[in-house]
Design a protein around this nucleic acid. Structure first.
Lengths: 120, 120
DNA sequence: ACTAAACATGCGCATATACTCATATACTTG
DNA sequence: CAAGTATATGAGTATATGCGCATGTTTAGT
């Protein structure tokens, strides 16, 4: 598995290989769905089971289950089975900062646009 | 324009509205394409015109132009026209940390997987 | 004004993926 | 073992989007 080697090029400001770029792109793609972000946001409060997430988000059970699968396969979430229920939790702590960064950036943009229009 | 208000909820650990979630998701989606990441990576070296980016990435001119448009509309890149040429550059400095964070996270994952397999 | 260069864009195709509905699986309890 | 509950998944559909091809637009030079 050469991924570690490939990805470490980033820290050294070296160009990433095609494989590495696809991995990074895929990571961003996993976070590029509003419902998945809503799930992540809910899990910021702590571990929750599927039913709790279904009720909290207002989505259908099937859809939520699929999104949770996507997030888990990407190692963003962790899965813990306890009897009939399955509990999900944030597995990748970098998600916090990632969301903070994007929100901060978007907020700055919004403020600039608001100022440009003289509103607010 | 209430975006600024909505997004600021993030910093206070409050739930984001549907609109805010869609904005964040869209931001991630813009970064979820290998070719766009390659362009961004190339622009880490500094401002470049379209032709230079076409040659550096090996993509077609039409495709590169479209990706640059996507990135510019998302305010990730800035566009500067000078005669016949158009120069693009990184407009959103948060992109650096964003990429670093994801790369670091993926690298950790890869290392763990490598260790689990006993390879490396 | 004509030509060429640099970049952008309309269009069609192919693929990916989010969603819903129905059903399957796993586990607990009586 | 039967029934019920919590979760996962197969199938089908609709939408989005990346790509290539051709063409359009803007600007510089003669």
């Amino acid at each position: 598995m050469s991924s570690a080697c490939l990805l470490s090029r980033m820290a050294k400001k070296l160009p990433l290989s095609d494989d590495a770029l696809e991995m990074v792109a895929r990571r961003f793609a996993v976070l590029a769905e509003p419902m998945r972000l809503r799930l992540i946001q809910n899990l910021f409060e702590g571990e929750k089971n599927v039913n709790a997430l279904v009720e909290a988000t207002g989505g259908t059970q099937a859809n939520i289950s699929r999104h949770l699968q996507t997030l888990t396969q990407a190692s963003v979430l962790a899965r813990r089975k306890e009897g009939l229920q399955v509990f999900y939790s944030i597995a990748d702590p970098s998600i916090y900062r990632l969301c903070e960064l994007v929100c901060g950036s978007l907020e700055k943009q919004a403020v600039r646009q608001a100022e440009a229009f003289g509103t607010d």
